[in-house]
Computed example of a mutant assay.
Amino acid sequence: MIRLEARPVFEAGALLGEGPVWHGAGLLWVDIPDGKVMRSQDGRTRTMKVFGSPVSAVLPRRRGGYVALHDLDVAVLDADFHELGRISVLQRETGLRLSDGAVGPGGELWFGSMRHDLAAGGSLFRLRAGESAPTEVRAGLGMPNGMAFSPDGRSLYLVDSVRRAVTVLDYDPETQDVSGDRVLIEVDPDLGTPDGIAVDAGGGIWVAMWAGGRLRRIELDGTWSQEILVPARNVTSCAFGGAGLQTLYITTGTVDLGVEEARQQPTAGSVFGISLPIGGLPQEETEL
């Protein structure tokens, strides 16, 4: 197996950095617990918005602005991150919040829900432009986490962190529906827990390993081919960006690190990066 090593490119000290997307010549990402939306660009990181409660992803809109997966709702934001409206998804008493998300080939928004206590009980949702509420596409999942589409737009890859698996759902571009649910790979506990993912232009799937200090690339036959080591234990997600989309940016967190672990991992919570021979795909923008 090919082994590589990432380096810190944006020092941040995030509690739980997540949801990176490359947009507008910069990297957008979130620090989940405090609901911070961050932009890393030109060697520095700025806070663009503070929700004050968990935000798990911010994704660009085709008409300008963004959508944010904020706690229980989908928030619609303008280009300056001012809120324009909300679409309600969950109720407080369920003990759930929104998790990771992705934009489908048709511009629809896909996202998951997860329990606050990290037990099984999440769902997969789809929200289309003009809809007042999302559709619960799959219920009874463990913890839907990272999700991404294949280069041909025919497969939705979905991480279930409780099942410790990366699964494949068949996607129909005509109907924007999914079918099937097969396990592409199960992750050994020694590697960490599968979290966020990114698909490269060659169809390989990069998986961030929470508590594993690494990412691994899955081939389409369900085997591991490459590994990127990160000098931070809590690796959360990844996205391609930079010139030619050749850099894989990697978010990390400091949450759950003990005093000694934090001392040994001084760059934990930073955004790391590594240039790869096979780059990524342009970030889709939602029609919402």
Score class of each variant (00 low, 15 high):
residue 16 L to Q: 05
residue 206 W to V: 02
residue 18 E to K: 11
residue 112 G to K: 09
residue 64 G to V: 10
residue 271 V to Q: 01
residue 218 I to Y: 14
residue 230 V to Q: 05
residue 162 V to D: 11
residue 60 P to S: 01
residue 160 D to C: 00
residue 25 A to G: 06
residue 99 S to E: 08
residue 227 E to A: 02
residue 210 W to E: 01
residue 145 N to R: 07
residue 1 M to P: 12
residue 233 R to K: 14
residue 259 V to Y: 13
residue 114 M to H: 01
residue 186 E to F: 03
residue 130 G to M: 09
residue 242 G to R: 06
residue 229 L to F: 10
residue 1 M to L: 04
residue 242 G to E: 04
residue 51 F to P: 01
residue 9 V to F: 00
residue 195 D to C: 02
residue 230 V to I: 15
residue 153 G to N: 03
residue 4 L to K: 15
residue 16 L to E: 01
residue 284 E to R: 15
residue 60 P to C: 02
residue 113 S to D: 08
residue 11 E to M: 07
residue 180 G to F: 03
residue 251 T to D: 05
residue 91 Q to V: 06
residue 144 P to E: 01
residue 65 G to S: 07
residue 16 L to N: 07
residue 279 G to Y: 04
residue 207 V to P: 10
residue 22 W to A: 06
residue 76 V to L: 15
residue 38 M to G: 01
residue 58 V to A: 14
residue 148 A to E: 09
residue 1 M to G: 13
residue 21 V to L: 12
residue 176 Q to F: 00
residue 89 V to E: 09
residue 143 M to K: 04
residue 44 R to Q: 13
residue 123 S to G: 00
residue 21 V to R: 15
residue 121 G to Q: 10
residue 92 R to E: 15
residue 18 E to W: 06
residue 259 V to H: 14
residue 192 G to D: 04
residue 258 G to P: 06
residue 272 F to C: 08
residue 171 Y to I: 00
residue 200 D to E: 06
residue 240 F to P: 05
residue 121 G to H: 11
residue 246 Q to I: 03
residue 194 P to N: 03
residue 139 A to Y: 02
residue 38 M to C: 09
residue 72 L to R: 11
residue 110 W to N: 07
residue 102 A to W: 04
residue 90 L to Y: 07
residue 39 R to H: 08
residue 21 V to C: 13
residue 269 G to K: 10
residue 106 G to M: 04
residue 153 G to M: 03
residue 19 G to A: 15
residue 148 A to D: 11
residue 207 V to Q: 06
residue 246 Q to N: 13
residue 187 V to C: 12
